[in-house]
Design a binder for these strands. Structure first.
Lengths: 124, 124
DNA sequence: TCACTGTTTCGACGTCTGTCGATGCCCGGA
DNA sequence: TCCGGGCATCGACAGACGTCGAAACAGTGA
C-alpha cells in the first residue's frame, strides 16, 4: 500500500495485475470477490474526467499518448495526475517515462475483459 | 450540480432512456456531455453489491428475477432497494410489479451499448 | 553545475455515497 | 374490511472521493 519514494513509476507488472476476473455477467452470479474486483474496474471509469482521459489515450494513434497531450480536460494538473494514477492502478492504463514526458497507453486485455463481461449473448 | 429531473421510476421508456450515447472509446475523444452520461452508467456498476445484484438478475432464466430471489447479498433490504433503484435510474434494469412481488429485468440494449463502448477493435 | 519544465505527491477541504433502522405504501388473503 | 408480508422511501451517519494549491521529484539543456 505504500509505494514510498524509491521507484519512479512501477508500471504495474502484467502478471501481477488485475487481469483474470471476468466471466460474463449472465453466466452465473458473481462471487463476492469477483464482484469486488470488477467493481474496482468499473469504478475507474465511473468518473467523467477519467473517462475523457481514457478516451483521449485510446483514441490517440497507437493507443498511447503523452500526458501533455491529454491534460486539457478542465481540471488542474495534479487532478489529472491523480486520475491517471487511478486508471493505472485499475490496470486500464500503463505508463512509461520517455525522457521528459510520460506516455500512457491502454491495456487492451483488461479493457477487452470488461467488455466481454458485459456481453449479454448467452441464450440464443 | 445538474440533477434536476428525477424520473418517477416508471420503468423507463425505451426511447426516452439513456440509450444512444456510446461511440467506442477508441473512435474519438468523448465530449464532456457524453463522458458525463457514460460515467453515470459505469458508476452504476462500480459497486460490488450492485454488480452482484445485476449479475443475479442477468443470470436468472429470462434475464429477470424477483427481488426476493436476489436480495441476499449481505446487506439490509433497504440497501438492496436503494441499489436496485440506482441500477434502474442508470437504465441497466427495468422493474415491473406483478402482484405482491417486483421483478427486475436487464435492459439488453443499454448493456450492449456499454460493452460496445469498451470495444477496442478499431485500429489494426 | 544551475535553471527550467513536465509530472507526481502531499495535505486539506467540501461533497457525494453506502449503509442502517424506522416508517410508509401496495397488494393478496382471510 | 382488516391483517400480514414484500418492497420503497426517509433521515441520519461514517467513510470514500474529487478537487485544489503547494511542494517535491525527474530529466533536459545551457
Amino acid at each position: 500500500m505504500s509505494k514510498q519514494k524509491t521507484v519512479g513509476l512501477p508500471v504495474l507488472e502484467p502478471d501481477d495485475a488485475v487481469v483474470p476476473c471476468c466471466p460474463p455477467l449472465t453466466a452465473a452470479e458473481l462471487s463476492a470477490e469477483d464482484a469486488e474486483r470488477m467493481a474496482a474496474m468499473f469504478k475507474a471509469l465511473s468518473d467523467p474526467v477519467r473517462l475523457r482521459l481514457f478516451s483521449k489515450v485510446a483514441s490517440h494513434p497507437g493507443g498511447e499518448a503523452c500526458v501533455c497531450d491529454i491534460a486539457d480536460v478542465g481540471v488542474s494538473q495534479p487532478t489529472v495526475s491523480h486520475h491517471l494514477k487511478k486508471l493505472r492502478e485499475a490496470g486500464l492504463l500503463t505508463s512509461e517515462r520517455r525522457g521528459t514526458w510520460v506516455y500512457y497507453a491502454v491495456a487492451p486485455s483488461v479493457v477487452a475483459a470488461m467488455s466481454a463481461t458485459l456481453d449479454l449473448r448467452t441464450a440464443t
